[in-house]
Amino acid sequence: MSKTFTKAEVAEHKTEEKGIYLIIDGGVYDVTNFLDDHPGGAKILKRMAGKDSSKQFWKYHGKNVLEKYGGKLKVGTVEEKAKL
């Protein structure tokens, strides 16, 4: 789970073949195997695939959801670039 991704690498994961990855608060989550179980349906996860979904996630979910599923789905973090 200690893998570090660039935003460009996460953006490549937007199909079921390559994996459906989302960024939430700097964490990278592989939701490919969660598509059928997502209460809101697979469509929204596919639409947000490869993107930072933090704003949308927190709009509809509480902290308990990330605590419950995050450990199982997290595959790494997004690389932080130094701002000069």
Rank of each mutant, 00 (worst) to 15 (best):
D52S: 07
F5K: 01
K81F: 15
V75G: 01
S2D: 15
P39K: 03
I44L: 13
T15V: 12
L73P: 02
H61C: 02
K55Y: 14
D52R: 04
G70A: 03
P39L: 03
V10K: 03
V75H: 00
L73R: 04
L22G: 01
M1R: 08
K18S: 12
G62K: 09
V75D: 00
K68H: 14
D52F: 08
P39H: 02
E67K: 11
V31I: 07
T32H: 04
G26S: 09
G50M: 01
S54P: 05
Y60I: 10
V28Y: 00
I20H: 02
V65H: 06
K3A: 08
L66V: 06
F57D: 04
E17S: 13
K72H: 10
I20G: 01
T4D: 06
K83F: 15
G50Q: 00
S53K: 00
S2N: 15
K63I: 15
D25P: 07
L35G: 03
G71P: 10
K51C: 02
K63S: 14
L73Q: 09
F57R: 06
D30V: 04
V28T: 00
L73T: 08
G40I: 07
R47F: 13
I44T: 12
V75P: 02
A8C: 09
G62W: 05
P39R: 03
G50E: 01
L22E: 01
K59W: 05
G41C: 07
I44C: 08
Q56L: 11
K83M: 15
G76H: 07
L45P: 04
E79N: 10
N64I: 12
D37N: 13
L35R: 05
I20A: 02
G71A: 11
I24G: 00
L66K: 04
E80S: 14
F5W: 13
W58Y: 08
A11G: 09
G71F: 14
G19Q: 07
I24T: 02
L35A: 11
L66S: 00
L22R: 02
E17Q: 14
L73D: 01
D36R: 08
T6R: 06
G41T: 08
